[in-house]
């Protein structure tokens, strides 16, 4: 689970990066680890990654910006992922999205001011038989309709 922004342990990250020294092919694994522990990719850490793995900062940024899982801004404590795959779309994910955005007061892709929630829309979580699907952290909610949204949000502080 994503932690608070300023909480990340720089030293342990440095140790982790060190284990992949001069292994440019490990870039995505390294970035994933940083994203998971720090909740985003802080610039000073990326500079360190480029130096240790033997890549230019541009190359690191080029790869990091390509993949949807990497963010350059801090994430919330809880990550809400709304599925917009075909089955969910056909079964009315749009109304769920509108309710989520209204309840949280943010748009998809953003984080609430108190960093309680981040909201993302993804293409398919692969639970098509149970559409529409919302995932909060590792919990999956099936057959979500807008009325269920407040109840789901209340479970996460």
């Amino acid at each position: 689970m994503a932690q608070l922004v300023d909480d990340y342990d720089r030293e342990s990250l440095t140790c982790f990066i060190q284990t992949h020294r001069n292994q440019p092919a490990s870039l995505i694994q390294v970035l994933s680890h940083i994203q998971q522990t720090a909740g985003y990719l802080p610039k000073p850490v990326l500079v360190e990654v480029s130096e240790k793995l033997g890549l230019s900062l541009t190359e690191v940024y080029s790869t990091a910006s390509f993949y949807a899982f990497f963010t350059f801004r801090p994430r919330g404590r809880h990550n809400i992922v709304l599925c917009n795959g075909t089955a969910c779309y056909v079964k009315g994910t749009g109304a769920v999205r509108a309710t989520l955005e209204r309840e949280l007061g943010i748009r998809a892709g953003d984080t609430t001011a108190d960093r309680r929630f981040s909201l993302d829309v993804v293409r398919c979580l692969g639970c098509c038989a149970l559409a529409p699907v919302v995932m909060v952290d590792k919990d999956v909610y099936a057959g979500v309709d807008p009325a269920k949204v407040p109840e789901i949000l209340n479970k996460y502080q």
């Binding site: 917009n84 795959g85 075909t86 089955a87 779309y89 293409r123 398919c124 692969g126 639970c127 098509c128 038989a129």
Partner: peptide, 11 residues
């Protein structure tokens, strides 16, 4: 990398 929305065989 089963990305096709609407597919979950591989998973």
């Amino acid at each position: 990398d089963e990305g096709d929305p609407g597919a979950f065989m591989d998973r």
